[in-house]
Computed example of a mutant assay.
Amino acid sequence: MSYDTDHVQNAGGTPERITGIHTFTDLVNNVALAALYTNIRSKGTATGPELVDEAAVSKKTVYDYLSTLASAGLITDIGEENGATTYAAEDFELTLTVRDVAVSITPSLVAVLSHRDEYPVIDRVLEEHGLLTFALAHDLVMDHHEGEVTIRQIGDLTGLSSGMTYDLVDAIYAIRDFGESASSPETYTPSTVDSKQHNGDETEE
Protein backbone atom coordinates (compact mmCIF):
# COMPACT_ATOMS: atom_id res chain seq x y z
CA MET A 1 0.00 0.00 0.00
CA SER A 2 1.25 3.48 -0.79
CA TYR A 3 -0.22 6.95 -0.62
CA ASP A 4 0.73 10.57 -1.29
CA THR A 5 0.53 13.63 0.94
CA ASP A 6 1.34 17.29 0.35
CA HIS A 7 5.02 16.69 1.15
CA VAL A 8 5.61 12.95 0.65
CA GLN A 9 4.89 10.79 -2.37
CA ASN A 10 4.91 6.99 -2.54
CA ALA A 11 4.68 6.68 1.23
CA GLY A 12 3.70 3.35 2.70
CA GLY A 13 2.80 2.01 6.13
CA THR A 14 6.45 2.28 7.16
CA PRO A 15 8.09 4.91 4.92
CA GLU A 16 11.84 4.89 4.38
CA ARG A 17 13.89 6.83 6.88
CA ILE A 18 15.75 9.76 5.30
CA THR A 19 18.39 11.45 7.46
CA GLY A 20 21.30 13.80 6.93
CA ILE A 21 19.54 16.14 4.51
CA HIS A 22 22.60 18.40 4.61
CA THR A 23 24.54 15.63 2.87
CA PHE A 24 22.40 16.10 -0.25
CA THR A 25 23.32 19.78 -0.45
CA ASP A 26 26.95 18.98 0.42
CA LEU A 27 27.09 17.09 -2.88
CA VAL A 28 26.84 20.48 -4.57
CA ASN A 29 29.70 22.09 -2.62
CA ASN A 30 32.06 19.22 -1.79
CA VAL A 31 33.87 18.02 -4.93
CA ALA A 32 35.43 14.97 -3.26
CA LEU A 33 32.09 13.83 -1.81
CA ALA A 34 30.38 14.31 -5.17
CA ALA A 35 33.16 12.42 -6.94
CA LEU A 36 32.93 9.50 -4.51
CA TYR A 37 29.17 9.17 -4.91
CA THR A 38 29.43 9.52 -8.70
CA ASN A 39 32.20 6.92 -8.86
CA ILE A 40 30.10 4.36 -7.00
CA ARG A 41 27.08 5.10 -9.19
CA SER A 42 29.03 4.85 -12.43
CA LYS A 43 30.57 1.51 -11.41
CA GLY A 44 27.28 -0.01 -10.27
CA THR A 45 28.97 -1.34 -7.15
CA ALA A 46 32.30 -0.58 -5.47
CA THR A 47 34.25 -1.57 -2.36
CA GLY A 48 36.02 0.73 0.07
CA PRO A 49 39.53 -0.36 -1.02
CA GLU A 50 38.66 0.23 -4.70
CA LEU A 51 37.44 3.72 -3.90
CA VAL A 52 40.49 4.52 -1.77
CA ASP A 53 42.80 3.56 -4.66
CA GLU A 54 41.01 5.96 -7.01
CA ALA A 55 40.25 8.85 -4.67
CA ALA A 56 42.13 12.15 -4.48
CA VAL A 57 41.62 12.28 -0.70
CA SER A 58 42.99 10.23 2.19
CA LYS A 59 41.81 6.75 3.15
CA LYS A 60 40.28 8.14 6.35
CA THR A 61 38.36 10.78 4.39
CA VAL A 62 37.03 8.16 1.96
CA TYR A 63 35.66 6.03 4.79
CA ASP A 64 34.26 9.10 6.57
CA TYR A 65 32.46 10.05 3.36
CA LEU A 66 31.19 6.50 2.86
CA SER A 67 29.71 6.63 6.36
CA THR A 68 28.15 10.03 5.63
CA LEU A 69 26.63 8.86 2.35
CA ALA A 70 25.34 5.65 3.92
CA SER A 71 23.77 7.52 6.85
CA ALA A 72 21.94 9.77 4.39
CA GLY A 73 20.69 6.77 2.41
CA LEU A 74 22.62 7.80 -0.70
CA ILE A 75 24.59 4.54 -0.79
CA THR A 76 23.66 1.08 0.47
CA ASP A 77 25.76 -1.74 1.92
CA ILE A 78 24.90 -4.72 -0.30
CA GLY A 79 27.30 -7.27 1.16
CA GLU A 80 30.98 -8.13 1.10
CA GLU A 81 33.54 -8.89 -1.58
CA ASN A 82 36.86 -10.37 -0.51
CA GLY A 83 36.18 -9.25 3.04
CA ALA A 84 35.41 -5.65 2.02
CA THR A 85 32.01 -3.97 2.20
CA THR A 86 30.42 -3.44 -1.20
CA TYR A 87 28.34 -0.33 -1.84
CA ALA A 88 25.72 0.62 -4.42
CA ALA A 89 24.52 4.18 -5.04
CA GLU A 90 20.86 5.11 -4.71
CA ASP A 91 19.16 7.45 -7.15
CA PHE A 92 17.60 10.58 -5.67
CA GLU A 93 16.06 13.92 -6.52
CA LEU A 94 16.04 16.83 -4.10
CA THR A 95 13.80 19.64 -5.34
CA LEU A 96 13.89 23.13 -3.84
CA THR A 97 11.12 25.59 -4.70
CA VAL A 98 11.21 29.31 -3.95
CA ARG A 99 8.68 31.80 -5.39
CA ASP A 100 7.34 29.14 -7.78
CA VAL A 101 10.80 28.48 -9.23
CA ALA A 102 12.06 24.95 -8.64
CA VAL A 103 15.57 23.53 -8.97
CA SER A 104 16.37 19.85 -8.57
CA ILE A 105 19.61 18.28 -7.39
CA THR A 106 20.00 14.89 -9.09
CA PRO A 107 22.81 12.35 -9.63
CA SER A 108 23.20 13.67 -13.19
CA LEU A 109 23.84 17.19 -11.93
CA VAL A 110 26.15 15.95 -9.16
CA ALA A 111 28.20 14.04 -11.75
CA VAL A 112 28.99 17.31 -13.53
CA LEU A 113 29.64 19.18 -10.28
CA SER A 114 32.18 16.53 -9.28
CA HIS A 115 34.45 17.95 -12.03
CA ARG A 116 34.60 21.48 -10.59
CA ASP A 117 38.36 21.22 -9.96
CA GLU A 118 39.01 20.34 -13.60
CA TYR A 119 36.76 23.02 -15.09
CA PRO A 120 36.90 26.38 -13.23
CA VAL A 121 33.97 27.70 -15.29
CA ILE A 122 31.64 25.51 -13.20
CA ASP A 123 32.72 27.33 -10.03
CA ARG A 124 32.45 30.69 -11.78
CA VAL A 125 28.87 30.07 -12.85
CA LEU A 126 27.89 28.84 -9.38
CA GLU A 127 29.56 31.73 -7.57
CA GLU A 128 28.41 34.50 -9.91
CA HIS A 129 24.96 33.21 -10.93
CA GLY A 130 23.92 30.52 -8.43
CA LEU A 131 22.75 26.91 -8.55
CA LEU A 132 19.49 27.59 -10.37
CA THR A 133 21.26 29.23 -13.32
CA PHE A 134 23.85 26.46 -13.41
CA ALA A 135 21.15 23.77 -13.44
CA LEU A 136 19.29 25.61 -16.21
CA ALA A 137 22.48 25.99 -18.25
CA HIS A 138 23.30 22.30 -17.74
CA ASP A 139 19.90 21.24 -19.08
CA LEU A 140 20.16 23.63 -22.03
CA VAL A 141 23.55 22.16 -22.93
CA MET A 142 21.86 18.73 -22.99
CA ASP A 143 19.29 20.25 -25.35
CA HIS A 144 22.09 21.74 -27.47
CA HIS A 145 23.59 18.28 -27.84
CA GLU A 146 20.22 17.12 -29.17
CA GLY A 147 20.17 20.03 -31.62
CA GLU A 148 17.23 21.76 -29.92
CA VAL A 149 18.86 25.08 -28.92
CA THR A 150 21.82 27.15 -30.08
CA ILE A 151 24.72 28.28 -27.94
CA ARG A 152 23.58 31.86 -28.37
CA GLN A 153 20.16 30.90 -27.00
CA ILE A 154 21.79 29.29 -23.97
CA GLY A 155 23.48 32.59 -23.19
CA ASP A 156 20.27 34.55 -23.72
CA LEU A 157 18.17 32.26 -21.53
CA THR A 158 20.66 32.03 -18.67
CA GLY A 159 22.12 35.54 -18.71
CA LEU A 160 25.66 34.15 -18.97
CA SER A 161 28.26 36.09 -20.94
CA SER A 162 29.27 34.72 -24.33
CA GLY A 163 32.68 33.63 -23.05
CA MET A 164 31.26 31.90 -20.00
CA THR A 165 28.63 30.17 -22.13
CA TYR A 166 31.26 28.86 -24.56
CA ASP A 167 33.44 27.61 -21.70
CA LEU A 168 30.56 25.90 -19.90
CA VAL A 169 29.33 24.20 -23.07
CA ASP A 170 32.85 22.91 -23.76
CA ALA A 171 33.22 21.71 -20.15
CA ILE A 172 29.93 19.82 -20.07
CA TYR A 173 30.57 18.32 -23.52
CA ALA A 174 33.92 17.04 -22.24
CA ILE A 175 32.47 15.70 -18.97
CA ARG A 176 29.63 13.96 -20.80
CA ASP A 177 32.02 12.74 -23.50
CA PHE A 178 29.87 14.30 -26.23
CA GLY A 179 32.86 15.11 -28.43
CA GLU A 180 33.47 18.54 -29.94
CA SER A 181 30.89 21.20 -29.12
CA ALA A 182 31.76 23.42 -32.12
CA SER A 183 31.64 26.42 -29.80
CA SER A 184 34.85 28.27 -30.60
CA PRO A 185 34.52 32.02 -29.92
CA GLU A 186 35.73 32.94 -33.40
CA THR A 187 32.65 31.21 -34.82
CA TYR A 188 30.28 33.17 -32.60
CA THR A 189 31.65 36.69 -32.34
CA PRO A 190 28.96 39.42 -32.41
CA SER A 191 30.24 40.67 -35.76
CA THR A 192 29.88 37.19 -37.22
CA VAL A 193 26.32 36.89 -35.94
CA ASP A 194 25.43 40.35 -37.24
CA SER A 195 26.94 39.53 -40.60
CA LYS A 196 24.96 36.30 -40.87
CA GLN A 197 21.72 38.04 -39.98
CA HIS A 198 22.44 40.88 -42.45
CA ASN A 199 22.99 38.34 -45.21
CA GLY A 200 19.77 36.51 -44.32
CA ASP A 201 21.65 33.51 -42.93
CA GLU A 202 20.60 33.03 -39.33
CA THR A 203 21.80 29.47 -38.99
CA GLU A 204 23.70 28.87 -35.74
CA GLU A 205 25.30 25.83 -34.20
Rank of each mutant, 00 (worst) to 15 (best):
P107L: 02
V149H: 02
H145W: 15
V125F: 02
G130C: 00
D123T: 08
R124D: 06
S114L: 07
E81A: 15
S114C: 07
I105C: 13
V112R: 11
A84E: 10
T97Y: 02
T150G: 08
Y37M: 00
L157P: 07
T86K: 06
R41T: 05
G83M: 12
T86W: 14
K59P: 01
H115A: 09
A56N: 11
L51G: 03
E128K: 05
P107E: 13
V98K: 08
Y65K: 14
R99L: 14
L113N: 01
H144Y: 15
K43I: 08
V121A: 03
T45P: 04
V125G: 00
V103N: 08
Y63D: 06
T85P: 03
T150I: 08
A72V: 04
S108Y: 13
R116S: 04
E148N: 05
E90V: 13
A72N: 01
V62C: 03
D156M: 13
N39G: 13
E148H: 13
E90L: 03
A88R: 11
R41K: 09
E50T: 09
K60T: 10
L36I: 08
G48Y: 10
R116C: 02
H144S: 15
D123C: 04
D77T: 11
L126Q: 02
E127Q: 14
I122W: 04
F92Q: 01
E93T: 15
V112G: 02
T68D: 10
I105H: 03
A55K: 11
Y119S: 01
R124I: 09
T68H: 10
E93K: 09
L126D: 04
T86Y: 13
Y37F: 13
D91A: 14
V98Y: 13
P49V: 01
L36C: 07
R116H: 07
T86P: 12
T106Q: 00
T150D: 11
D100L: 10
